[in-house]
């Protein structure tokens, strides 16, 4: 597990950008964190890291936003789902196992549908500072363990 802290929304976006630069087709990144934690903010950075030029907005109502970068990015949001089974109505397999990378907000809502190999990211707001955020990155599977190692290296180099 890798734990990181950001001091501002700008830093969160930059962290996302580094993550985005490491994503490959078929990757699933599961985001968890309260309202206002910065999930969409991180997603915006991920999109930029993938070379997406379009504006990245919240997928809460639209459920899935698709972007074209170096590979497609599927930005999904489970916030409005009434039950996990509704994910099936969305045809989730075509995204999770499709030609792009998937970024899933409120992933905890659909825990049982998440692929075994994935990157979990838990975002926590810190009580002492409203701008500060804690990111815990938990890799599942060899590919994501390597990815987190590379991420650690890049973040350290960046700092």
């Amino acid at each position: 597990m890798l734990t990181l802290y950001t001091q501002s929304a700008g830093e969160t976006e930059r962290l996302g950008e580094v993550i985005g630069g490491l994503l490959q087709p078929g990757d699933v990144v599961a985001l968890n964190g309260d309202l206002g934690a910065g999930k969409t903010c991180l997603a915006r950075g991920v999109a930029r890291g993938l070379g997406v030029r379009d504006r990245v907005t919240s997928p809460t109502f639209t459920l899935i936003n698709e972007y074209n970068g170096m590979i497609p990015l599927y930005h999904m949001d489970m916030y409005r789902l009434g039950s996990p089974e509704e994910l099936e109505d969305l045809g989730y397999e075509e995204y999770f196992f499709g030609p792009g990378a998937t970024l899933l907000e409120w992933a905890g809502q659909v825990e049982q549908y998440l692929p075994r190999r994935r990157l979990d990211i838990f975002i926590t707001k810190l009580p002492d500072d409203e701008e500060k955020r804690k990111f815990e990155l938990v890799p599942h599977g060899e590919r994501f363990e390597q990815m987190v190692k590379e991420l650690t290296r890049r973040v350290r180099a960046g700092n």
Binding site: T40, C41, T57, S58, F61
Partner: peptide, 8 residues
């Protein structure tokens, strides 16, 4: 909008 829609 650059992030959330008003209704959201």
């Amino acid at each position: 909008t650059r992030d959330d829609a008003a209704g959201e």
